[in-house]
Simulated scan of single mutants.
Amino acid sequence: MFTGIIEAIGTVTRLEKEKDNLHISIESGLTSELKIDQSVAHNGVCLTVVKIQDTVYTVTAINETLSKTNLKHLSVGDKINLERAMKLGDRLDGHIVQGHVDQTARCTHIEQANGSWIFAFEYDTAYNNITIEKGSITVNGVSLTVVNSQKDTFSVAIIPYTFEHTNFNTFKIGSEVNLEFDVLGKYVAKLVSANTL
């Protein structure tokens, strides 16, 4: 379980394909605090630490994960948002995030807004995921509030701290991002659709 509050930015140092799996090595200031078998969210994707060497650790993404996330597009040198699993009893500063990406989206608009930034994203509605105005959404692992919710698009407002301390500052029009929709909203939507059949 995660909160969507990014702890650090990691840098991809090595990518190694093994059959359908991708071993991703990441250099991070968090590495010294990690241990083997620990869960860490990478751009919102929960992956298990399988190797640690000095300031670099390695995780493995299976084909199922690669097919549903933007991790398949990683290159050496890319910046990746990192968050360790929350501790029981900690403050929940973001919202409840599972680290299970629902689908990807494309950045369609970036606008500077007098000290902050507005990012718009478009996603495929075939998966029946929805956003609601002022509801929660996780973009590349970052807990955010939805503004301008539409059928297949939404926007988020990014403050300078978030822009500087996440990989939002690398986004361009067309960038693919990972989305995890609000877990409570997903259950409500499922219950409503089940009762209307």
Results as ranks from 00 to 15, higher is better:
I158L: 09
L47N: 04
F154D: 02
W117K: 13
T60V: 15
Y57I: 06
N129A: 05
L66Y: 03
D54V: 05
L71D: 06
T55I: 10
Y127P: 00
L88H: 10
S67I: 10
K68I: 04
E122C: 09
V97N: 06
H23P: 00
N81S: 05
A113F: 07
H23S: 12
A189R: 01
A85W: 00
I62H: 07
D124L: 08
T55P: 01
I173K: 14
M1R: 10
H42C: 05
K134G: 07
E83D: 04
L88G: 10
L47R: 03
I52P: 01
K151V: 10
L74T: 03
I173R: 11
A105C: 11
S175T: 15
Q103G: 02
A61W: 05
G99Y: 11
T13W: 03
S136M: 09
I137S: 04
Y57A: 04
D152V: 03
N70T: 10
V188T: 10
I158G: 02
I5T: 03
V101P: 06
R106E: 15
L74I: 04
T3H: 04
E33N: 14
N129M: 06
S136Q: 05
T60K: 15
N178E: 05
T3P: 07
K172T: 13
Q38V: 08
K172S: 13
S155D: 12
L92S: 01
H73I: 12
V146E: 04
T153K: 13
K87G: 10
Y127L: 14
H165D: 04
Y123V: 00
A120K: 14
G185H: 02
N167M: 05
K51M: 11
K87F: 10
T196G: 00
S116A: 13
G141A: 03
I26P: 01
P160W: 09
E16T: 15
T60A: 12
Y187T: 00
T162W: 00
K134W: 04
T58C: 12
T11I: 15
N169E: 09
H42A: 01
T65Y: 09
T196R: 11
F168I: 12
D93V: 10
D90P: 08
F2I: 05
I118N: 11
T145L: 11
R91V: 11
H109V: 06
S175R: 10
I5Y: 01
S143E: 07
A157L: 13
G94Y: 08
N148R: 15
S149G: 12
S149N: 09
F171G: 00
T55R: 14
I24N: 03
A41C: 04
T69R: 07
K134L: 10
N114T: 14
V156H: 03
A61D: 05
C46Q: 05
K190A: 09
A85G: 09
F181S: 00
T31Y: 01
L92E: 02
F168G: 08
H23I: 13
G4E: 02
W117H: 12
T131A: 05
E180F: 09
F181Q: 01
Y187Q: 01
I26Y: 05
L74G: 01
S136C: 09
S67L: 15
D182I: 00
W117T: 13
L82R: 00
L71S: 04
S149R: 05
I62D: 13
I26M: 07
A41G: 02
L74P: 03
